[in-house]
Design a protein around this nucleic acid. Structure first.
Length: 575
RNA sequence: GGCGUCGUAGCCAAGUGGCUAAGGCAACGGAUUGCAAAUCCGUCACGCGUGGGUUCAACUCCCACCGACGCCUCCA
């Protein structure tokens, strides 16, 4: 089954065909780094990280670029407010952004270009556009003339003449028409500026992405992504500039992810910041200034948190917590990661369709946390039965490597081959189980092929969990595993499949610290728990269930769950 | 006002012009357990906002209406 992708440009799903066979170039609009990242900023990266994982799994060599906008009006304003420099603020906020991406397991980004390092490339495009008559200088600025671009508006479905008809406003500043946007902005004194043929200034927002995408990925890229809110004007303008400049299609597929909404309503990270909420800067102010003071401008957020500034970090957290009460979007760290495991957040994002808007709130995440708990139970069960570390299981990284799944087509570049058949499928030992695995695997991959339908894929994952648990139950592997080597081998095969598929979504890649079961990082706690469990086992043996239940009840109140299994009691801390 | 998206069970959420409309949470039965927990089995939308239309057949296509939302403002 070929991969199909919905493109905003054509408003339909299209078969995925890359510019270069076997290779994919992918560009995602990154953040303007003027304040700490909020959860909304994480959506695109998580989705495209998953897309990259899947394309790589499908045999493509993927190059993924996410830009950092480190020069912009907002940055200038905010830096002035904080009494710091644009560079320092940008560096700080970039580190925060990256830190959060790492936390969410987004590790597939190949290049993170900074806009300020591509000024020459931007100027080259601007000069070209002027030369071709698509742009005109004006009092130190340079504007793109929308009316010169015949198909301007094709991405967002806007009609330029209608747009212009709607605006009666005078064209300010001598622009040829109101829709014209800045490619280059002449600088005012004190603002960051670069020399240019049109005078000192800085690039417009849209040109940054055009230049970086072109420089790093070429004139035509395969996939261009971003939030739905960027479709107009940002992507429209990017497209207009790039195609006017090169005369080639800018991107083959335009992917737009839906935006997060607060459960209570309203978009996360909405327009509140426009009202100059000085309060929202308090936390950053503390942070930036403390770094400046230390005369070590390259210190990162992470390093500053590791030394003796714990108190300060706590203070910052408190400040940020206050923001929660105000209207601005909260930073991911304080609003989300403080309460939920990043894996829960990622799974939540995977459980719905990337193009849909999603209500984001604590109750939703709590539900997700409950729903994925069973996966951790399965992983623990697997380890008990096989003695193997789930996270160390070798798994195929591409469909081509995943041999043995009868008649599952394997995508290699542009051509389709069929994986070799496996003699194990359909043997008398586990016919139904093996067959079920094949069906579930196909369901999962078909869903992903269909415009990266992670929601449907997650459904297959839940069914796979049930199938695996059922196999363990049916064969009594928790108790008789040692005497049934064949079944254990089959289980390993099934669990390996589960790992292979779930890893494509970027989940269950590594152990979750908080989910430590029957073993805390603290030996003292471990010792106490073992003591309690032993004592409780003794009184249970003596049928003194009241005492046993009292112990269990007391532990429950401490958020510790006991499970009395046939082969002993295990405990788990629910954080 | 212009452009666009969406409305599937108590909640969240996939999906399809025609077999029994995924999955999760919650709930309820049963197995298991001293009781729990975990796990397994079972139940849980004769219907997919409302009203029309096209069709042999629509929840899926078309129209209208109601409702929610997004963009049109350098927000991922």
């Amino acid at each position: 089954m070929p991969i199909r992708i919905y493109s905003t440009l054509t408003r339909q799903k299209e078969e995925f065909q890359t510019v270069e066979p076997g290779k994919v170039s992918m560009y995602l609009c990154g953040p303007t780094v003027y304040k700490p990242a909020h959860i909304g900023h994480m959506v695109g990266p998580v989705i495209f990280d998953t897309i990259k994982r899947y394309l790589a799994y499908s045999g493509y060599q993927v190059t993924w670029v996410v830009n950092i906008t480190d020069v912009d009006d907002k940055l200038i304003v905010k830096a002035n407010e904080l009494g710091t420099t644009v560079e320092a603020l940008a560096r700080k906020m970039t580190e925060d952004y990256l830190d959060n991406l790492r936390t969410l397991g987004v590790d597939g980004i190949d290049h993170m270009p900074y806009a300020t390092q591509y000024i020459a490339e931007m100027q080259e495009i601007i000069a070209g556009l002027i030369e071709k008559g698509y742009a005109y200088p004006l009092n130190g600025d340079v504007y793109f003339e929308c009316t010169k671009d015949a198909d301007y508006g094709k991405l967002s479905g806007r009609n330029l003449t209608e747009m212009l008809a709607g605006t009666r406003a005078e064209t300010r500043d001598g622009k040829h028409n109101p829709a014209d946007f800045a490619l280059w902005k002449g600088s005012k004194p004190g603002e960051p500026a670069w020399d240019s043929p049109w005078g000192p200034g800085r690039p417009g927002w849209h040109i940054e992405c055009s230049a970086m995408a072109r420089k790093l990925l070429g004139d035509t890229i395969d996939i261009h992504g971003g939030g739905l809110d960027l479709m107009f004007p940002h992507h429209e303008n990017e497209l207009a500039q790039s195609e006017s400049c090169t005369g080639k299609p800018f991107a083959r597929y335009w992917l737009h992810n839906g935006l997060l909404r607060k459960s209570s309503g309203g978009k996360i990270g909405g327009d509140h910041s426009r009202h100059g909420d000085a309060r929202s800067s308090v936390a950053e102010l503390v942070r930036v200034q403390s770094d400046e003071a230390s005369s070590s401008p390259v210190r990162s957020l992470t390093t500053s948190a590791t030394n003796s500034t714990d108190m300060m970090a706590e203070k910052q957290a408190q400040e940020e917590q206050k923001l929660a009460g105000s209207k601005g979007a909260e930073s991911v760290k304080t609003a989300v990661f403080a309460k939920f495991d990043p894996e829960t957040v990622r799974f939540f994002l995977m459980a719905t369709h990337y193009r849909s808007p999603v209500d984001f709130g604590d109750d939703r995440l709590e539900e997700t946390a409950k729903s994925i708990d069973g996966f951790y139970r399965l992983i623990e069960s697997f380890t008990r039965v096989t003695g193997q570390d789930f996270y160390a299981l070798p798994t195929p990284r591409t469909r081509a490597e995943a041999v043995g799944w009868d008649s599952v087509p394997t995508k290699v570049g542009a051509e389709t081959v069929v994986a070799e058949t496996n003699s194990n499928v359909g043997t008398e030992s586990q016919p139904t189980f093996e067959a079920e695995l094949v069906v579930l695997r196909t369901r999962f991959l078909d869903a992903m092929d269909d415009d990266f339908n992670t929601g449907a894929a997650v459904g297959a994952l839940f069914d796979l969990r049930k199938t695996l648990n059922g196999f363990i139950t049916d064969h009594k592997l928790e108790t008789d595993g040692k005497s049934n080597a064949a079944a254990v081998t089959t289980l390993i095969r099934g669990v390996t499949l589960f790992k292979e598929l779930s890893n494509l979504l970027g989940v269950f890649l590594k152990p979750i610290a908080k989910k430590a079961s029957s073993g805390a990082d603290d030996e003292f706690v471990n010792g106490l728990m073992q003591l309690l469990i032993t004592l409780r086992a003794d009184v249970r043996k003596a049928k003194q269930f009241e005492i046993a239940d009292k112990i269990r009840q007391g532990l429950t109140e401490l958020k510790v769950t006991l499970e009395d299994r046939p082969d002993g009691t295990i405990w788990r801390r629910d954080v």
